[in-house]
């Protein structure tokens, strides 16, 4: 059987000529095919892209045995830290990447990878919510829209099916620090979520945009770029930067441990730091690049979109924190309680 599997592989894999290969483990539809083609044309490296649908699914499959098959992955902020702690990342020095200096200064010394030893910024954005303005015209500048909604929105809210983001936004709403171990605070968080749940219509991450466009939901927790796409598809939705705060996240291209094509991976990371290329991703995904000098290359509607340009008085967002094991257990229990 083993011989059979291996014999068939070369028949089905695309021919790898020239400068070798690069295997990227990536979110689907997060990188335009034209950009992949451009990289292949510039370097002669054959790129194979494999996809995952959540940070956790990627972690699970790398831990179950896929480490060593891929060169580059694109985890979110907290997942970079987890992967580093799990020993899944290789590191590089700034000298390996001629474009290292293009990284925007505020994204250089990030808490999840101080000094950028294993990762470079890919795209960043925020997670809050969007409201259909045909249904509700009131003030949406507060997280109460999700957790204590007005009558018009009751029973018509979609929340992301993602523990980290729901609990983080809930904590921000209550003014509780993330990874709190305080009993009263955790109890309050759980009670608040349990009281809010009857007002929610559904949990869904992949469907977050579609339910807004189709009208199944009148408000929904959503990523800013996703809300922009919903608006572009004709839904009269407005994305909110609530006054209590919101979640920011950043996806990062990382160098994986045991990368079979380490040199090509570094070329690829360097390629992504080129402003023109970072801008191409931004134009495609409607988030924001973490690279300086992208503005001249941005499409007009992306550069000026309300989703990526928070109002001047918007508060700062916060990353989802990585809790230690004992604390995480409490948050797991709250989540299970919420969904039982």
């Amino acid at each position: 059987m083993k011989r059979f599997g291996i014999a068939l592989l070369p028949l089905l894999a695309s021919p790898a000529f020239g400068e070798g290969e690069l295997k990227v483990y990536h979110w689907f539809e997060y990188m335009p095919q034209e950009l992949v083609d451009k990289f292949q044309a510039e370097t002669g490296i054959t790129v194979t892209i494999d996809t995952y649908d959540s940070n956790e699914a990627m972690l699970a499959s790398l831990k179950a045995g896929k480490l060593g098959q891929y060169d580059v992955a694109v985890p979110g902020d907290y997942m970079v830290q987890i992967m580093a702690e799990e020993g899944l990342l290789d590191s590089f020095s700034p000298a390996d990447l001629p474009n290292f200096g293009n990284i925007a200064p505020q994204w250089l010394d990030v808490p999840f990878d101080p000094g950028r030893k294993s990762s470079i910024p890919y795209q960043w954005g925020s997670t809050a919510f969007a409201v259909n303005r045909d249904v509700y015209q009131g003030d949406i500048n507060t997280l109460a829209i999700l957790f204590d909604p007005p009558d018009e929105l009751k029973g018509r809210i979609n929340v992301l099916d993602s523990q980290g983001e729901v609990l983080a936004l809930g904590s921000i709403y209550l003014g509780i620090p993330q990874c709190s171990q305080d009993r009263a605070q955790l109890k309050a968080l759980m009670d608040m979520l349990l009281a809010a749940k009857p007002h929610w219509a559904s949990f869904g991450s992949d469907t977050a945009k579609d339910v807004l466009v189709s009208g199944d939901a009148a408000a929904g927790m959503i990523y800013n770029g996703f809300a922009a796409k919903a608006r572009a598809e004709g839904a009269n939705v407005e994305y909110a930067y609530p006054k209590e705060g919101f979640v920011v996240w950043m996806d990062n291209a990382v160098l994986l441990k045991d990368a079979p094509n380490r040199d090509n991976a570094l070329k690829f990371l360097n390629f992504l730091l080129e402003p023109e290329n970072a801008a191409a991703v931004t134009n495609y995904a409607a988030y924001t690049a973490g690279v300086t000098g992208v503005e001249p290359f941005l499409a007009e509607e992306i550069r000026t979109s309300p989703e990526t340009n928070p109002p001047a008085d918007a508060p700062a967002g916060s990353f989802v924190a990585v809790c230690d094991e004992a604390t995480q257990k409490l948050y797991d229990a709250i989540w299970t309680n919420l969904k039982k």
């Binding site: 059987m1 599997g5 179950a64 045995g65 896929k66």
Partner: peptide, 13 residues
Amino acid sequence: IFFTMVGLRTGYG
């Protein structure tokens, strides 16, 4: 996990 353990390369086979 099993395929990885016995050293079978994942793919078409």
